Simulated scan of single mutants.
Amino acid sequence: MLTHSMGWGMWLLMAVSTVAFWGLVLLVVRALLDVPRGARPDSSAPFLLLQERLARGELTPEQYEQHRRLLVDGH
C-alpha cells in the first residue's frame, strides 16, 4: 500500500496561502468600513466660524455665546 504524504513544501504553501487569504479579507473589510480622512468632520470648524463672525462684527458677544452654547450643549 502506497501512502502519499505532504512534504514540508506543501505545508509551507498552505500556511502562506491561508495567511494571505485572511490578510486579503481583512484589507477588504477595512477598506469597506474605513471613512476617508478627508470626509471626517472637523469638530473645531463650527467654533472657528463663530470666532471669525465675531471678529468681523457679524455677531455680538451675546449672540456668539448663544451660538456657542448651542454647539456645545445642544440647547
Rank of each mutant, 00 (worst) to 15 (best):
M1H: 09
L2M: 15
L2K: 10
T3Y: 09
T3L: 14
T3W: 07
H4S: 07
H4F: 06
S5R: 08
M6H: 12
M6K: 11
G7H: 11
G7T: 13
G7D: 14
W8Q: 10
W8T: 08
W8Y: 12
G9F: 05
M10A: 10
W11H: 13
L12C: 02
L12N: 01
L12F: 03
L13T: 03
L13G: 01
M14T: 07
M14S: 05
A15F: 12
A15C: 09
V16I: 12
V16H: 00
T18W: 03
V19S: 04
F21L: 12
F21M: 11
F21K: 04
W22G: 04
W22Q: 13
W22I: 14
G23T: 05
G23C: 03
V25C: 05
L26R: 05
L26W: 12
L26H: 07
L27M: 10
V28S: 07
V28L: 06
V29R: 03
V29N: 01
V29E: 01
V29P: 00
R30M: 06
R30A: 06
R30S: 03
A31H: 15
A31N: 06
L32N: 08
L32E: 15
L32S: 07
L33A: 09
D34Q: 14
V35D: 01
V35S: 01
P36W: 00
P36C: 00
P36S: 00
R37A: 07
R37E: 10
G38C: 00
P41A: 13
D42T: 05
S43V: 15
S44F: 11
S44N: 11
S44G: 05
A45F: 09
A45D: 14
P46I: 13
F47Q: 09
L48Q: 08
L50S: 11
Q51L: 09
E52D: 15
E52M: 05
E52I: 08
R53L: 10
R56P: 02
R56M: 06
R56G: 02
G57R: 11
G57A: 11
G57H: 04
E58T: 01
L59Y: 03
L59H: 02
T60A: 13
P61R: 13
Q63T: 02
Q63Y: 03
E65N: 06
E65D: 12
E65W: 07
E65Y: 05
E65M: 06
E65S: 09
Q66M: 11
Q66G: 10
Q66E: 05
H67P: 07
H67T: 11
H67E: 13
H67A: 06
H67F: 09
R68W: 06
R68C: 05
R69F: 03
L70C: 07
L70H: 07
L71R: 04
V72Q: 11
D73S: 14
G74T: 04
H75T: 14
H75W: 04
